[in-house]
Design a binder for these strands. Sequence first.
DNA 1: ATCATTGCAAACACTTTGCATACGC
DNA 2: GCGTATGCAAAGTGTTTGCAATGAT
Lengths: 143, 143
Amino acid sequence: MNNEKELAMKKLKEYLDRKNIHPSYHRLKILKYLINHKIHPTVDMIYKNLSKEIPTLSKTTVYNTLNLFLRKGIVSGLTIDESEIRYDYNTKPHVHFKCIKCGCVYDIHLKCPIFDKEIIEGHKITEHHIYLKGICSECLEKV
Amino acid sequence: MNNEKELAMKKLKEYLDRKNIHPSYHRLKILKYLINHKIHPTVDMIYKNLSKEIPTLSKTTVYNTLNLFLRKGIVSGLTIDESEIRYDYNTKPHVHFKCIKCGCVYDIHLKCPIFDKEIIEGHKITEHHIYLKGICSECLEKV
DNA sequence: ATCATTGCAAACACTTTGCATACGC
DNA sequence: GCGTATGCAAAGTGTTTGCAATGAT
């Protein structure tokens, strides 16, 4: 339904408003993309996919928007491999897995006791990043 | 003692020989630096520090050597933040902590049950990377 | 009319590559 | 003398910045 779509857009708008982010068209689109594609996309993935819909979109805007979202804390950045930042809408600490064959990044729903500690060996912990690498279930089947 | 130093160098030489790496002067120096400075240095740190001793050293050689060591499996690369790879001589899986104030990277000696699993949610795990961020004990004291 | 967003192009930082030189055995 | 290690300079990649144009209220 169109009503449903408009309703969803309105919710996103209100969400950005609450975060003091002016809900421009591009920002809404990028936010929507992140929410609907929890594949930890790179800037390039976001840019390429949204360009189909929004031909005037520039990569700079994607960078600007993601950095704005990062600063406002509504997305987090993963640096699993050098030379590509991936963006993640889900902000709760969780585990990531990257397949060395297909390059996909999966969320792992695994509790880790490390998440509960606030002080470790005298250091105050504010962020947790855990990622595993290997061969994903899909690639394993293909062999 | 000079004898001690020579003995240590001889051991490093033999170590590289066993790994089928021709133990050139530069390679020995870089390996020695990594072993003696377990601070997860970046290429730049290694380059700047060794340049004092070896004025002719070029950054390319540092890159070449580290990539060789990576391929041969005698060091591992950390990508805690985008746009800087840090090199780690210790190859056993362990936890890293990066201070957001001073930028130092510490090893954390913490057992993590995740290290023992070989299959998680159908994915075959071959590498584990865990890093935490926050404020290190030294920076906490300074406040 | 004003102010923020957008987007091109240039600048940047880190890393890799090509190729000529120098070194060690 | 031959083969590898070295190092400069250029290319490559992903990201940021400067600034002018555009858009929204």
